Deep mutational scan, measured.
Amino acid sequence: MDVFMKGLSKAKEGVVAAAEKTKQGVAEAAGKTKEGVLYVGSKTKEGVVHGVATVAEKTKEQVTNVGGAVVTGVTAVAQKTVEGAGSIAAATGFVKKDQLGKNEEGAPQEGILEDMPVDPDNEAYEMPSEEGYQDYEPEA
């Protein structure tokens, strides 16, 4: 019985440690998101679009440190934060509304985080759909 109880105690310690790591990862992701939003706020009209992409990228980098179902929630929060940063930029006159959601080359930025393969159960990952990809044929 002692062996059984000791095993359960060790398992509990492992769960607590994993929860603490997840909590730490979420806190880091939130900190990076805040950094990115402050970065966007300090940019001029020309830099705002690039700044919004930076927020998304920093958040995406930190999301990889967070495991399990938390990833889905962090990704949703990050996307809403990026959308909010863009709205703030438009409201303050840093950028025109028609410039939001495009990178410096004018290509749409939507789907940055949505296409990231995420499995809350950590069982399997699927690649994003290939609808947006084109076949590449090298020139002879």
Rank of each mutant, 00 (worst) to 15 (best):
G36E: 03
E123D: 12
V49D: 02
V82T: 07
A107Y: 01
Q134N: 07
G84Y: 11
F4W: 07
A91N: 06
A107E: 04
E130Y: 08
K43T: 04
T75N: 04
A78H: 05
E130W: 07
A78Y: 03
V3S: 07
E131A: 10
L8S: 01
A76P: 02
V77D: 01
E114K: 11
T54I: 15
S87F: 04
G51Q: 06
G36Q: 09
A85T: 03
V49N: 02
V63F: 04
P108F: 08
V118A: 12
G68F: 04
D135H: 06
E61T: 07
P128V: 03
A69W: 15
T92I: 06
V66T: 03
V52G: 02
N103P: 08
Y136K: 03
D2S: 12
P128F: 09
K6F: 11
A76H: 03
E137F: 12
Q109I: 06
T72M: 14
K10E: 01
P117V: 10
G106T: 07
S9K: 11
V16A: 06
K80V: 08
A19T: 09
G106M: 10
T59V: 08
N103S: 11
Q62H: 06
E110M: 08
G93R: 03
A29S: 04
V26N: 00
Q62I: 11
A53F: 02
K21V: 05
A91C: 09
E28R: 15
A91H: 12
S9D: 03
T44S: 09
E137Q: 10
E20V: 04
G93Y: 09
E35D: 10
K96G: 09
A89M: 04
K32F: 08
I112E: 08
Y133W: 09
G25I: 09
V82D: 01
E13W: 12
G73E: 04
K32L: 09
G73N: 10
P128S: 05
K6W: 09
G7K: 03
E20W: 12
T81S: 10
G47R: 15
I88Q: 06
E83Y: 11
K23C: 10
Q62G: 05
A76C: 13
V55Y: 09
G73V: 14
E110T: 11
V15M: 04
N65M: 05
A140K: 10
T59E: 00
N65C: 11
Q109W: 15
A29F: 14
D135Y: 12
Q134S: 06
